[in-house]
Design a protein around this nucleic acid. Structure first.
Lengths: 186, 186
DNA sequence: GACAATATGTACCGATCTGTACATCTTGGG
DNA sequence: CCCAAGATGTACAGATCGGTACATATTGTC
């Protein structure tokens, strides 16, 4: 199998798992919806769970690239970008395909903290916390590590609320709290 | 089946679903672990999903009773109780059996906002938001509805972080943010 | 002891699950 | 045109899935 076929599989599987869940989506359904044969799938991945790990890693990469870029487009200063992150979040929540966070869902279905799927999910969140604390440091805030974790916490909370209740003002609620938090740390 | 047999089933099923997940836990596993026959289960519940709904309703009731009581034990004033909620959260995170929030997991596995399981999960969170905004109003804070939602958001974020990374300082991070938020609204 | 109500145990249904085997097809390069 | 590499399609294995049927056992009351 060429790399491009493997990439095609991972990209398509990512969408299907994101939309339908991991346990609730079987290999036969993946075959039907990706138009890629099961034999091909098992040529590149030893198991369904290995495929899930690959989709999460791709999602991590894509999400961060897109999210960081969007934040950079929305604001120039580090402090502005900390708040712009919530505007980018709001855009994501309003996407018709928004279905919560793939990593929150993955860690909910694979709860063992040492499970490879859970590990990838936790790594993703560490990267995001780093993003926030990096900006907080650049913005000259006090305790940027703490601020980074706290802002990430707001993001996670907003995602959960947006998913549970459908589109509402979760992102703007979070942004207001972030504004207060940042002001207090200036 | 007597009410007590049904109650026993729901209580036992709650623990098993909480620990192992919904899709990942089959009826045969429930039978093996509850020592209640499948025939009995289908005497009281038309389907597995109906049983899940019952376990979530029981969990909502138990969680709120225990959580509200614990908060009342930890502080007397409404403002004190808003913060004490995070201490109660911390205690929960340190419980050996802590495995995230049953409602976050339920809504992750049953994503359709109109699905009965998702509905019960969303209702649970509305109740919690009401708890927080009620306390915020009693504490004389400005915009108690907003504060209620924002505090709930911190709770949700803390739960997700605690679940992803294992025990860390998620609850205390959230509490610090809550302190700042409450001070800003006083 | 009898009997009704409640519960259990077992087998089964049709479907789906993950993963394997292998014959066959397609594609691309020489 | 040939051939190797890559991919597909189909059948299958054993297991598990949610749910049903029905014979049998248990329990509690009279």
């Amino acid at each position: 199998m060429t790399a491009s076929k493997r990439d095609e599989l991972v990209e398509k599987a990512l969408e299907i798992f994101y939309r339908g869940g991991f346990h609730a989506t079987g290999m036969d359904k993946l075959v039907a919806e990706t138009k890629i044969s099961k034999t091909s799938m098992y040529k590149h991945f030893r198991s369904k769970e290995d495929l899930i790990v690959a989709t999460l890693k791709l999602r991590d990469e894509q999400f961060r690239t897109q999210f960081f870029q969007r934040v950079s487009e929305l604001a120039d200063s580090p402090e502005g970008q900390l708040l712009a992150a919530f505007d980018a979040l709001d855009e994501w929540f309003h996407d018709d395909n928004f279905k919560s966070c793939m990593f929150i869902k993955a860690s909910s279905e694979y709860q063992d903290i040492n499970h490879p799927i859970h590990v990838v999910a936790a790594d993703h969140k560490r990267h995001l916390a780093g993003f926030f604390s990096g900006l907080a440091a650049k913005a000259g805030l006090r305790n940027p590590e703490d601020i980074g974790r706290q802002l990430l916490m707001l993001v996670e909370g907003a995602i959960v609320i947006a998913h549970l209740h459908g589109i509402d003002n979760a992102a703007s609620d979070a942004k207001k709290t972030a504004e207060i938090l940042i002001k207090a740390a200036s």
